[in-house]
Design a protein around this nucleic acid. Structure first.
Length: 830
DNA sequence: GTAGGGTTAG
């Protein structure tokens, strides 16, 4: 860079003295709309209308007739008239293929302007090639224009290449303007080498540089953050008196980006003395930037300068600064600025006010209200009132908001809240709006005060406020959520009949959902019939919820007919709702009906998912119809579904149930160990441990336990219980006991059947003392099962044996005497 | 302003 600066200096001193040669470069080459005769004007209109009409045929006879009259001036005019780049492109293409017609540099530039504005880089590239290949001669200005179009879409290398090609092919002798255009294009990129090369070329030509040459150079160095170079260029420009608003903006914006705040102000000051001032846009950008970096003093200083320069800031600028001040906790300054804005005649919008209310205290909000000038616009007063209402609601002071709103309405004449009374200077229907009600009603609903919300809603008419759909929906939703269905339905009726508003699907679904929660199948279907008229789809989550509730209560038939009714009304439930129903059927032992439903769905083109298959497979397995389950398993594989661990677990359980443990073990080996699917889980191992023990293979069960632990799978209480019960039943109570001890150590509490199995195993081995010990342990953690308990009898048999043996009989009698074995035993076992 | 609801071991 230093070398070039040196070269610039040389020129400036040697050549700039020549006033004539310092003249402003006036050949801008910009496109000027061609003037066309009135005949041609007609032609232009015709072509435009043909090309914008649909359907469009480029071989239409109309077009063929117009073609011979085509001139470049006409084409240029037509191109300037299209709003769509596509049509412009199409037309340009059509024109090029008409015999006797050839584009010139102006028509090409007209298209270039359109494409560049629409940021169509690919099409610009094609046009570049067309320009060169068509050997179209260009004036230096026209080439400059084209280059600027390329620059606008960031096609710097293409711009650079076009200049060379045009020059090499002799299509154009570029002048300084052309080069300046190129420099400008390059300055939008980071290709400083290209820029410096072109600059050198220009000096080699002996051209004197001007501000249009150096401004891009300044821009480039600023973009790259090479501030020393930028400063030098800036100095040179200053020496030549070439500085203007534009170059100042470039410099100042860069300095502010580099956080050189002092330098920014220094520069602005210096330029002011030269009578160069920032434009409004630059002021705005700088101020926004300062606020963003929390430099509020700088922002405010500049803001003052901006106003002194005669610019009237827009609300968005006030908005930014006020928000910045609020965030920094400088609320006093924010409020002052806000008042200043209001005095300057800018009406604050609710967005800004709501922002303010996020930061202000109640006192500050009230101050805002107190400063309302007399005779202020009623709408504005309402806006302020609503602001305070919002504030109260946000702060959780719902009652205060409620009282205030009633105060403004004037319906609370005997209120004793004097502070509130003095706050409300303006009272009456004019000062409340629908929004006021919306704010307070929503607040009341949030607090769960639905009745108050409805009460307030009913009073809206007094002050001539019309409720909105939103208010109705809010209320209806809240009423439905608190199961006040009748009131909700009343409101729905009123909404349509009195207020003339249409319920939305949300409105209807609130009520539908409530009916589903109430398990009111008939009501729900009636609602669906209403909804069908509005084409409002009943939400599936509500339908599924109803099906689930019914199934849980054994009302499966009702659930199924509800689903069928939905279909009847044209709303087909999804696989989830059907899965719930199928499970309901299975739980009531209606497996065949579940299968039937499943097959029906498939027949209607529904593809059941893994979960649906799982439900059926597990149902079949539980009913020991394992081979049918296996067929379903195969079917899901054929259908391209991947069985999940759940599927395998159910199959494993099934095989175990019918005593085919080996097939169960085969299943285990098939469970994917991919990280994603997680491999076998506790349920897998638990099922297998149980199955192996039942099959009389306790040793393998023990191995399985170890394998499980090796896989990092932690046993939990069901696993322990399976192991303890299994070992007991296999006649290995000693080992079972050690697992029981471990289980207790882990803080898990076994269910009673585990003790029963263990006690029975010990008894059958005549280990009476141990039996007694285990019984004592059992009683330590729980009480003796009641008479109606399914294990009562079994335990009683155990007791009977203990009582009969002399080693344990006295201990048992002691337990009975102490009441540890419950009231029923005292007489029977004596 | 509105997407989570259905599956396995005792």
């Amino acid at each position: 860079m230093r070398r070039y600066i040196h070269i610039f200096r040389l020129w400036f001193y040697e050549e700039c003295s020549d006033a004539l040669r310092l003249r402003r470069f006036i050949c801008t080459g910009d496109q000027v709309s061609p003037s066309v005769s009135s005949d041609s004007e007609q032609l232009v209109s015709n072509i435009v209308s043909i090309f914008t009409k649909k359907p469009f045929h480029r071989d239409s006879p109309e077009l063929r007739n117009l073609a011979p009259a085509l001139t470049t001036k006409v084409v240029e005019s037509v191109l300037n008239r299209f709003k769509s780049w596509k049509i412009a492109h199409e037309f340009f293409d059509w024109a090029s293929s008409q015999s006797g017609y050839m584009h010139n540099c102006y028509t090409i530039n007209a298209l270039a302007a359109v494409l560049s504005g629409a940021r169509r880089n690919a099409e610009m590239k094609t046009l570049s090639s067309y320009l060169v290949n068509s050997r179209c001669p260009m004036t230096p200005g026209a080439l400059g224009f084209f280059i600027r179009c390329l620059g606008n879409v960031g096609m710097v290398e293409e711009a650079d290449a076009v200049l060379n090609q045009a020059k090499d092919l002799g299509l154009c002798i570029p002048n300084k303007y052309t080069y300046n255009c190129l420099l400008q294009a390059i300055s939008r990129s980071d290709k400083v080498e290209i820029l410096e090369m072109r600059l050198k070329e220009m000096t080699d030509f002996g051209w004197e540089l001007d501000k249009f040459t150096l401004t891009p150079v300044l821009q480039m160095y600023c973009n790259l953050g090479r501030m020393k170079c930028a400063m030098r260029v800036f100095e040179i420009m200053g020496d030549q008196d070439w500085l203007d608003v534009h170059s100042l903006s470039i410099m100042v914006l860069r300095l502010s980006k580099l956080c050189l705040t002092d330098e920014v102000f220094e520069l602005i000051q210096k330029m002011e003395s030269r009578n160069i001032r920032l434009n409004e846009q630059t002021f705005c950008i700088l101020i926004h930037g300062f606020v963003k970096e929390s430099k509020l003093d700088a922002a405010l200083e500049l803001f003052d300068k901006m106003k002194r320069s005669g610019f009237t800031p827009e609300i968005s600028l006030y908005d930014t600064i006020i928000e910045g001040l609020c965030k920094k906790g400088q609320l006093k300054r924010a409020l002052d600025l806000y008042l200043e804005m209001r005095e300057s005649g800018i009406s604050p919008d609710s967005k800004l006010l709501i922002k303010l209310s996020d930061f202000f205290s109640e006192e500050q909000m009230i101050q805002l209200l107190e400063e309302l000038p007399e005779g202020m616009d009623t709408k504005m007063v309402t806006l302020y009132y609503n602001l305070l209402l919002t504030f109260y609601i946000k702060a959780g002071l719902t009652d205060k908001a409620h009282i205030m709103l009633r105060g403004i309405m004037g319906s609370d004449s005997n209120s004793h809240d004097t502070a509130m009374d003095s706050l409300i200077k303006f009272k009456g229907a004019d000062f409340v709006s629908t929004a006021s009600f919306n704010i307070v009603i929503s607040g009341l609903i949030q607090k769960g005060e639905v009745d108050s919300a409805v009460g307030l809603f009913l009073d809206m008419g007094q002050v001539h406020c019309r409720p909105t759909v939103e208010i109705y929906n809010n209320l209806i939703e809240a009423l439905c959520n608190s199961n006040k269905l009748d009131v909700a339905k009343d409101l729905l009726r009123e909404m349509e009949a009195t207020s003339g508003l249409s319920p939305t699907q949300f409105t209807h679904n609130c009520i539908f959902g409530c009916l589903c929660r109430r398990e009111d199948t008939i009501g729900a279907i009636d609602m669906v019939k209403v909804m069908r008229v509005y084409a409002h789809e009943p939400w599936i989550k509500h339908s599924s919820d109803l099906v689930k509730r019914l199934c849980n209560k054994g009302r499966v038939t009702e659930a199924c007919s509800f689903l069928a009714d939905l279909v009847e009304e044209g709303f087909v439930p999804d696989i989830v709702a059907y899965s719930t129903a199928m499970r309901g059927l299975i739980q009531t032992h209606k497996i065949d009906q579940a299968m039937e439903l499943f097959r029906d769905l498939q027949a209607q083109g529904c593809r059941p998912d893994v979960v649906a298959y799982n439900i059926l497979i597990s149902g079949l397995c539980k009913a020991k119809r394992v081979s049918e389950a296996d067929k379903l398993f195969e079917e899901m594989l054929e259908g391209g579904l991947f069985p999940s661990v759940v599927t395998y677990n159910s199959m494993i359980d099934g095989w175990c149930q019918i005593g085919d443990v080996d097939r169960a073990l085969l299943c285990l080996s098939k469970i994917s160990r991919k990280a994603q699917e997680g491999g076998p889980d506790v349920i897998t191992y638990t099922t297998l441990i149980d199955g192996l023990c039942i099959a009389g293979r306790p040793d393998e069960a023990l191995t399985m336990w170890d394998e499980m632990k090796r896989q990092g799978c932690v046993p939990h209480s069901i696993t322990f219980m399976a192991m303890i019960k299994g070992l007991s039943k296999s006649g290995r109570p000693e080992e079972a006991r050690s697992y029981l001890k471990e289980m207790l150590r882990e803080g898990m509490k076994p269910q009673i059947y585990v003790y029963v199995a263990l006690l029975e195993a010990l008894i059958s081995e005549q280990k009476l003392e141990e039996t007694f010990q285990v019984l004592r342990e059992m009683l330590e953690i729980g009480s003796f099962p009641e008479l109606k308990d399914k294990w009562h009898v079994a335990l009683r048999d155990v007791l009977a044996k203990l009582v009969q043996d002399e080693r344990t009989s006295s201990s048992i009698r002691a337990l009975v005497a102490e009441g540890h074995l419950g009231p029923h035993l005292s007489d029977t076992d004596r």
